[in-house]
């Protein structure tokens, strides 16, 4: 499916922000990711027309960066950190508990397209290790039990928006910083919530 007019207008607004059209490629790929949960070939054709480069050049960028998914993700992308700080703080058992609950191996998506599981390198939350991201919204200080509860909650509640502060309050523990400003925006799909391109959405908590 090619893009709806609304999305194309949004894309054009983003392109306006840059001196050269092709510079908008990254954000536009996030729009495509938010639309389908992956970068579809149709979206690539659409983006190539919008920024004036060839399809394969768009594909080249989209396939290089691991946050642009080539296969459709579930509604909730679970990214569990496996880097050193989390590893020391027993991220292995968090990983195992998430894997056990979802029944997924690395980079797999379940049949209902609810969860995609991936092990990732450092997500910059060492102070609150072990940490997990759900749709790139970070939860820190998790335990195997809490992570299990979080997965169960996601599966039952199916929140439209995933918001870091909400997850942290419900399931998190130690945080890297406790003076951060309250933030009630979150992400609805496997794409980071950016306010300037509109992938961050507000939730009344």
């Amino acid at each position: 499916m090619s893009w709806e007019k609304e999305l194309i207008d949004k894309a054009n607004e983003i392109i306006e922000l840059y001196p050269e059209k092709r510079s908008a490629l990254g954000p536009l790929l996030y729009l495509a990711q938010e639309k389908d949960g992956y970068i579809s070939n149709d979206s690539i054709i659409q983006i190539s027309n919008l920024v004036g480069i060839t399809e394969v050049q768009v594909k080249s960028v989209a396939s290089f960066y691991s946050m642009y998914k080539e296969e459709q993700t579930g509604k909730y992308l679970l990214s569990v950190c496996k880097s050193i700080s989390c590893e020391i703080n027993d991220s292995r058992s968090v990983i195992d508990s998430v894997k056990n609950f979802t029944g997924l191996e690395n980079y797999e998506t379940d049949n209902d397209k609810v969860f995609t599981f991936e092990e990732v390198e450092c997500i910059g939350a060492c102070g609150g290790a072990p940490a997990v991201q759900v749709n790139y919204e970070t939860v820190e200080g998790l335990t195997p039990e809490k992570s299990l509860q979080m997965c169960e909650w996601l599966k039952e509640e199916r929140p439209e928006l995933v918001v870091a502060d909400e997850l942290q309050e419900k399931f998190g523990g130690v945080k890297s910083f406790d003076w951060a400003i309250k933030d009630n925006t979150g992400s609805s799909y496997s794409v980071p919530g950016f306010q300037n391109i509109g992938t961050a959405k507000e939730k009344n908590l």
């Binding site: 070939n41 690539i44 060839t54 399809e55 394969v56 594909k59 080249s60 396939s63 290089f64």
Partner: peptide, 22 residues
Amino acid sequence: GDPLIEFIQRGNKTQVNTFPDE
């Protein structure tokens, strides 16, 4: 001036290729 081939993927999987149907 007709860039119809490009590197796809990265790391060990890096390969030159075209876009499907192009």
